[in-house]
Amino acid sequence: MDQLYIFTRQHFVEWYDVQIELVDHLANGIEEQWETQPNLNFETALKIEFKKFGVFGFSELVEQKTNALDKYYRKEIFMHFKAYLGLPKLIITLFSIWIIYLLLISVDNKTFVTIPFVGSALIVHFLFLFKQQREMKIRYKTTGKKWLFEQSMIQFGGLIHLLNLAIYFPIIIDSNKQWTSTSTLVLSCCLVIYVLLLYIAISVVMPSVKESAIKQYSEYRLIKV
């Protein structure tokens, strides 16, 4: 078994949640070959089984698994986000938009609002990333295992790239420009959506994903940082 785990790592599968399935598949295939050819050596049998995964080996499988996980997290985040567009949570959304709007119209220079707002959200975001990376590092050091679902989870299923665009909010806002009510409203909507997505990804989706991972994999444990 250990040899098979090493083999998957040598073929660029560093994620334990993917290795489990591949190792079992390879082991089953090798055992079946041994039933008809008991003298076949392990290396040859393994080579035959690996060939069945095609010319790209495991890499395509890992790529598609990552895409599937990313899609799952995005869907989860948007599903929870949709709740904020319907009653009763819609009240919180509209109230937040209204508060931000009032703040924005109360100042001449919009960056006085956007910089502290986006800045604090980014600090929360970076603290979260730092904590998760540290947790993953400690887990790898103590157990020798890396988890693909975790990697995809901390990137919010690829949504992280969209959220990172918030960094440009204060830059694209020209302080000298005259803002119409509509554009101010659009800006306050964007700020609220940004914070909501961040909150849902970190505080709602991530804990539920970790909880189901603990149920699925007995070897996955939470680590306190």
Binding site: E21, G54, L61, A68, Y72
Partner: peptide, 15 residues
């Protein structure tokens, strides 16, 4: 084929 089966399983799981 293995290359077709596992991506399908993972996709169905994600869905």
């Amino acid at each position: 084929t293995e290359g077709a089966l596992y991506p399908s399983l993972h996709k169905l799981e994600a869905e």
